[in-house]
């Protein structure tokens, strides 16, 4: 395990690729490697990119990589795509838009499937972020489809979160409002040559302005930018805005590394414990077939789910709560 960690820190691509696979496949030995890697993390700047399918996230990420590389920064990319709930397979196609960077040694791109994790997507993506961080990447871009709590949680682990929309998405903006507006640090209207850009701009502005109270005392107020990612239009301005937000973060939280901020650490630890418990408790029961038996009992009406839950939880706790 020591060897794996050393190779990751030395930037060995095959070791990094394999370790991320092992994390995703839930191999128990990764825990030790991650423990050893943790002291090497906390240096990378993590940018989350989220938005509905087809808004141009991958294309935007591709351009962002170019801009960061021009400034001499190394880049890691994690592109998350959904797993088919029916077959368990996935088509991971975000890479198509980024392939021009595949031979650049300063860039590491990895596609991840959401899989059927019991709340483990957040966990495994965070661990993958740690691996790329320990590998020495300056910037890590995490791209997810902004649906589902897990994916929102993933982008919440970022230092700067971008929410990408396109013109004419009236009702979808309502959807954003309900879930992820709160986590957006920067809003991007991509494909801004299309009709309806100004309307989308004013809709977003109205939504943000309704939270006026939140932005008092110099608090960061999410700017709204227009881009045409395919033509690299507006991407330079976006990168400048990300840099402004980075400096704002730095000013607000001092030189305290992001991962050591109390709110973040608490939240991440709680999530890690939750994922591990589910993994150990449910995982064991599924493997032995006991889980399926209990489910059968509920289905056939012999047992109610509340009693079933107690039956599972009480032996683990060793007492009646």
């Amino acid at each position: 395990m020591k060897e794996i960690a050393e190779k990751v820190v030395a930037g060995d691509v095959r070791t990094v690729a394999r370790l991320i696979r092992d994390i995703d496949d839930g191999m128990p030995h990764v825990r030790d490697a991650l423990k050893r890697l943790f002291p090497h993390t906390g240096r990378a700047y993590v940018i989350g990119i989220t938005g509905a399918p087809g808004v141009g996230k991958s294309t935007l990420v591709d351009q962002m990589i170019s801009h960061l590389r021009k400034n001499g920064k190394t880049v890691g990319v994690l592109a998350v795509d959904p797993t088919s709930p029916f077959s368990g397979g996935a088509i991971l196609g975000d890479r198509v838009r980024m392939q021009r960077h595949s031979m650049d040694e300063g860039v590491f791109i990895r596609s991840l499937a959401t899989r059927g994790h019991f709340g483990g997507l957040t966990q495994s993506t965070r661990s993958a972020i740690d691996v790329l961080d320990a590998m020495g990447k300056d910037y890590i871009l995490v791209e997810t489809v902004g649906v589902g709590q897990d994916e929102v949680d993933v982008v919440r682990s970022a230092h700067t979160t971008l929410i990408i929309v396109i013109p004419g998405m009236g009702d979808d903006i309502q959807a954003i409002k309900a879930g992820i507006l709160e986590v957006g640090d920067i809003f991007v209207i991509n494909k801004a040559d299309r009709d309806g850009t100004d309307k989308t701009m004013s809709d977003l502005r109205l939504m943000i302005d309704m939270d006026q109270k939140k932005y008092k005392d110099g608090k960061w107020k999410p700017p709204i930018l227009k881009t045409q990612a395919v033509f690299d239009q507006g991407v330079k301005e976006l990168m400048d805005t990300i840099e402004e937000h980075r400096l704002y973060n730095f000013k607000t939280h001092g030189d305290l590394p992001f991962r050591k901020r109390k709110d973040r650490v608490g939240q991440e630890l709680a999530e890690m414990v939750k994922a591990r418990l589910i993994e150990e408790v449910i995982g064991g029961l599924v493997e032995s077939g006991a889980f399926d038996m209990v489910v059968e009992e509920i289905v056939s009406g012999k047992l109610d789910p509340y009693t079933a839950c107690e039956r599972i939880v009480i032996p683990v706790l060793g007492k009646r709560p």
Binding site: S87, G89, A90, L92, G93, R95, Q99, M103, S111
Partner: peptide, 20 residues
């Protein structure tokens, strides 16, 4: 078809060099 068989499929897109 690979997805439906339960594999994770990474697609590269067109016009790739062997090195890429």
């Amino acid at each position: 078809a690979f997805r439906d068989a339960g594999f994770e499929v990474v697609y590269t897109g067109l016009h790739q060099t062997p090195e890429q």
